[in-house]
């Protein structure tokens, strides 16, 4: 980050290192398909926690359970806050979970295609704004003041992600790599307590990947935002994560620092198994 930012993007007040997200024995089934079979793991405040595993291992499903898109049949996912309060995520609806500070990006970009980059990012501010039909219809006064106040934070995110040139562009017309970046930006505008990123670098070239890795590191390092990262590129994962959890066929194999995980027999086997298959 090249200059001082006025807004703190971190929405959590937990002490660094404290357990923030507790996934407890989560089981998810789709008919006969068991997408998650009793997965438990914990994410600590301020870490970059990678989730890896072969295709179909259940990584995205776990993220969907965390953000309320799927409701697991068994188990729970708890979010701890600085004031000692705990939220049970598996019982809440997605918009409520967002209010508690869980923000995410999607594996297949899910931006609001027909509106501008700016409006997409402003939607990241939705939970922090007051919405009254009457004040909105009049616009001048409170509604405009609110737009401008939130625009300031959004502009900082735009600067941070280096997407100044496209802020007024319609999202649907942007190149894939830029869209990926905008999606991360939208999640950041929420001032998240936990940032869930589902393959933010998939389909990117090396240069774009490096940029994205730098953004993730900066968000984590400088702002202190906890990041849960699903990524297939092992090099990136081993480079930037503090801890790594490995899923295979809906079960968690292990959690550890990158070196441990890389050396783990079962992990190697899971990945070899994939290559053979």
């Amino acid at each position: 980050m090249s200059r001082a930012y006025r807004h703190n993007l971190n929405g959590s007040d937990l002490a660094p290192g404290a357990t923030q997200l507790e996934v407890d024995d989560v089981a998810l089934r789709f008919g006969g398909v068991r997408a998650l079979k009793g997965v438990s793991l914990d994410v600590r405040q301020g870490e970059i926690h990678a989730i890896i595993g072969p295709n179909g291992a259940g990584k995205t499903s776990l993220l969907n359970c965390t953000s309320g898109v799927y409701r697991p049949q068994e188990g729970g996912i708890r979010l701890h806050r600085g004031d000692g309060q705990t939220h049970e995520l598996t019982a809440a609806r997605p918009h409520q979970i967002a209010r508690w500070g869980i923000a995410r990006s999607f594996q297949n970009i899910e931006l609001f295609k027909h509106i501008s980059v700016l409006d997409n990012l402003m939607l990241g501010r939705h939970v922090h704004m007051k919405h009254s039909v009457w004040k909105t219809a009049l616009f001048f006064g409170p509604a405009r003041a609110q737009e401008i106040a939130h625009r300031e934070l959004v502009e900082e995110v735009i600067d941070f992600l280096e997407i100044q040139a496209v802020r007024h562009a319609h999202v649907g017309a942007l190149p894939y790599g830029v869209q990926k970046r905008v999606e991360v930006g939208r999640a950041l505008c929420l001032q998240p307590a936990v940032l869930l990123l589902d393959e933010p670098m998939a389909g990117m070239n090396t240069e774009e990947k490096e940029d994205m890795a730098r953004f993730i590191l900066d968000v984590n390092d400088l702002a202190g935002v906890t990041v849960v990262l699903i990524e297939h590129d092992m090099e990136v994962v081993m480079d930037i994560s503090d801890r790594v959890s490995v899923l295979d066929f809906g079960s968690k194999i292990t959690t550890g620092v990158p070196d441990e995980v890389q050396a783990d027999e079962r992990v190697i086997e899971a990945y070899l198994g994939e290559e053979v298959a």
């Binding site: 899910e110 931006l111 990241g124």
Partner: peptide, 15 residues
């Protein structure tokens, strides 16, 4: 607009 374009993402953004 968010709901029109992508309702799941809209919900996940807190709408």
């Amino acid at each position: 607009h968010a709901i029109r374009d992508q309702d799941i993402a809209a919900a996940v953004m807190g709408i």
